[in-house]
Design a protein around this nucleic acid. Structure first.
Lengths: 242, 242
DNA sequence: CGACTGATTGATTTCATTCAAATATAGTGG
DNA sequence: CCACTATATTTGAATGAAATCAATCAGTCG
């Protein structure tokens, strides 16, 4: 039995997954009860240091990942170094769905990240044993697709103001699902990450946040903390109304 | 038996699908041989006039569609009418994967379109009977996701020149798969459609094409026809090199 | 043949970028 | 604890790439 880097529990083999806080809103919720042991047997817990990468665009897609703690950035690079951040992955986010056999995006930890790693072959075994898992994967891919299409609207047609507002609103609602949007947000990523996500520059992101603060839409007690003072107004800006 | 709007053939019930030119590179290729009859029974052929819409963002997702002829544009609108074209669907393209129960994009025929329509319930039946179909759907969704992520790089980080070059190169390679990219392209969509796909204006698209023509990269015998004179150079511009 | 639509070309403007500098904020070792 | 360094953020001024405004040209269709 391989030594895992998580504290071994005296309970059953299903324990790591059964007690996983991220499971309820991840693809792992396709598997329940006694079958959790099979899931736990395939999952390899892994810690990623802040700033470290764990998935490389273009490399053979050997593993799937499920984020269980922290925040990661997904991104693609152009040959000259220009970067587009595709999204931010928080607990519950499933990574590694790949078109061909190579990853289509890279991933790095924005802050210390905990994740569960599944080898492709192990995953194939799980999918064979639990067909509902493939259904969940399809749901996940479809949801990601809808998110990417929304991002296309943002990048192609929204103003800087609308983009930053959209980001704040989405980040507020993007925590554990089916919960009311938060009004106090922690932004673990840098202004540069946000800029590369919104197709803007660091300076424009900073200026736009300052403007929102002066307009009374948000408070910025510190750079990494945002309080939404008028969420509805921000939502309206995000949607491109008025 | 319902009267179909396609000429009835004296052959088997599988005939409509068996002889479908788009099947080999669509999700329908998950079903073969004798089982094609089941596929054909679920597929309702439909003709869409140029300019007509057949899928509405936000409306209940009652059907899936498979394009068998012509070209459609997929798009999303902002409240004030700004439009982002998400992509163009050609024969073989599968449409209607929806996150919740509502379509996430709208679709209109750019030129007369032929498609096969599947009700959600019929599709569910097919997926139950042919599990490999769900696998194909996952492949399709994953491929679409990779395409959308590539589009995010284009919209967020590429210059107008790089965007137009990317579009031409992608359109050239985007026909039937596993075929060499075409060098003579027909562009059935308007400059406005291209602009809304690339996050630019009509004028910028037009100017950029003119510039490519003057630089000897393309020929434009007529507005809707492009000949790629130096595909490799165009590819380099698209990738953002030099 | 006008009227309409789509595409191209030109002149001007603008929003976001780039260039530049100041101001936090955190970390490190003396 | 306090310099000292390194990094992130904010703010300001100047520039520029694409948008907007405007006009012309080309093809289509009652």
């Amino acid at each position: 039995m391989p030594a895992l880097s998580v504290p071994a529990s005296p309970a059953s083999a299903a324990e790591p997954c059964a007690s996983c806080g991220a499971r309820s809103y991840s693809v792992c919720n396709a598997i329940e009860g006694a079958d959790l042991a099979a899931l736990a047997a395939a999952a390899v817990p892994q810690a990623v240091l802040a700033g470290a990468g764990f998935m490389d665009e273009g490399e053979p897609a050997t593993h799937f990942f499920n984020v269980t703690g922290g925040t990661a950035r997904l991104f693609k690079l152009l040959p000259d170094g220009r970067r587009q951040v595709i999204g931010f992955a928080r607990p519950g986010h499933f990574l590694g769905l790949a078109s061909a056999d190579a990853y289509t995006v890279s991933a790095e930890a924005v802050e210390p990240v905990r994740l569960c790693r599944f080898s492709r072959s192990r995953m194939r075994g799980l999918v064979d044993s639990f067909p509902q898992l493939e259904h969940r994967l399809l749901e996940t891919a479809t949801h990601e697709l809808a998110t990417a299409q929304e991002a296309m609207v943002l990048l192609g047609r929204k103003t800087a103001r609308e983009r930053v507002a959209s980001f704040l609103v989405a980040w507020a609602s993007g925590g554990p699902p089916c919960l009311p949007p938060a009004t106090t947000l922690r932004l673990p990523m840098t202004r540069g990450d946000i800029a590369d996500y919104l197709g803007l520059t660091i300076e424009t992101v900073s200026r736009t946040l300052t403007r929102f603060r002066k307009d009374g839409l948000i408070a910025l007690p510190e750079p990494a903390e945002v309080r939404l003072l008028r969420p509805a107004a921000l939502q309206a800006v995000a949607a491109g109304e008025d």
